[in-house]
């Protein structure tokens, strides 16, 4: 079937089945079908002319058991692949311990996008600009994939390989993303901030996520920083994290982390911003993300989404 090169498929070659469980979805995918849940990337991409809709589709949107947010035995969080952004933004466990993820889900598309778009679709679309990527990486995100041979777990850092590309096989279905729990010692805060020209219906021009843990004396004992729309994949920046550990988490430390993020950035120029502008803004947005995470770690309230209120910091 030559769907990869033709813009349209003939009506007679199109098939659709609805999966009732993970096994039937994987079976359909093994036979060549592409999974569809909210359709907010796949169908919209086809409307854009980015890629035609696959001829064979398997609806996964009603598979039971993939729409739950639940604590893991290890003190972390397991988010089913079908959990929508709207659910994440309203989930008490997410708001309490993973506010950076709520910051991200709160600004994806419009409220219709968030009501239908799933975390699984966001992750498997592998966009370097997707908002949930940086907070998921900072929280130690692991993809749980199920294929014909069974289940395997892949760190998100090893899943994404480029824009729209991942190490998942075509017949592997993402069933959940698991996140680390907060460290046993110290107080943690997380955040995601993006540079945006408008507050809704926007795609990140530049984004950054941070998770900061403070010891009893207020010293940063652990830091995770990841950058968005600044490289072919969303990735953590070790130099930015090193610039924070051992500091007071104040402006100068955050500025140093921002400078490290800008140095690590390999942005492109496109309609939303030039590479030079993105690199310059990487420093600013990373600084704001770090300062927001520190404020939350200190117990201060920063409303979700942080992007709307952290100008000037």
């Amino acid at each position: 079937m030559s769907t990869a090169t033709s813009m349209t498929t003939s009506a007679s070659s199109r098939t659709y089945v609805e999966a009732r469980d993970v096994a039937s979805a994987v079976a359909a995918m093994s036979a060549g079908a592409r999974p569809i849940a909210g359709g907010t990337d796949l169908v919209v991409g086809a409307r854009h002319g980015k890629a035609p809709l696959p001829a064979a589709l398997v609806g996964i949107h009603r598979i039971p058991g993939l729409s739950d947010v639940a604590a893991t035995d290890g003190g972390g969080l397991r988010i089913g692949a079908l959990v929508t952004h709207a659910t994440l933004v309203a989930d008490p466990a997410v708001l309490a311990a993973y506010p950076g993820l709520a910051d991200a889900s709160a600004i994806v598309g419009s409220h219709a996008t968030r009501a239908n778009g799933t975390l699984g679709g966001n992750v498997m679309n592998s966009s370097p600009a997707m908002d949930t990527g940086a907070p998921l990486l900072c929280h130690g995100g692991v993809a749980v994939l199920v294929g014909p041979a069974g289940e395997r777990r892949v760190a998100l850092a090893d899943l994404w390989t480029g824009p729209g590309r991942s190490t998942a096989a075509p017949d592997e279905l993402l069933v959940a993303v698991e996140l680390d729990g907060p460290p046993a010692d110290g107080a943690s805060g997380s955040s995601y901030v993006r540079l945006q020209y408008r507050r809704q219906m926007e795609i990140a021009i530049v984004g950054a996520g941070a998770v900061v843990t403070l010891g009893a004396d207020g010293t940063v004992t652990d830091a995770k920083v990841a950058i968005t729309a600044l490289a072919p994949v969303i990735h953590r920046v070790a130099e930015a994290e090193a610039a924070l550990v051992g500091t007071d988490g104040g402006f100068e430390a955050a500025r140093a982390a921002g400078a490290a993020a800008a140095a690590a950035a390999r942005p492109i120029s496109d309609v939303r911003g030039s590479a030079d502008y993105r690199r310059a803004m990487a420093a600013v947005i990373t600084r704001r993300a770090v300062l927001t995470a520190v404020r939350r770690a200190r117990g201060e309230s920063v409303p979700v989404p942080a992007s709307d209120t952290t100008f000037g910091s």
Partner: peptide, 29 residues
């Protein structure tokens, strides 16, 4: 727009707001 940008097509599907231009009818079965 036929592209999920303008919202003129919005419907509720099981109570959720949906851009119906970019939602497959088969999924609303």
């Amino acid at each position: 727009c036929d592209d999920s940008e303008c919202g003129a097509c919005m419907m509720l599907v099981d109570g959720r707001p949906v851009n119906a231009c970019s939602y497959l009818a088969v999924q609303a079965d």
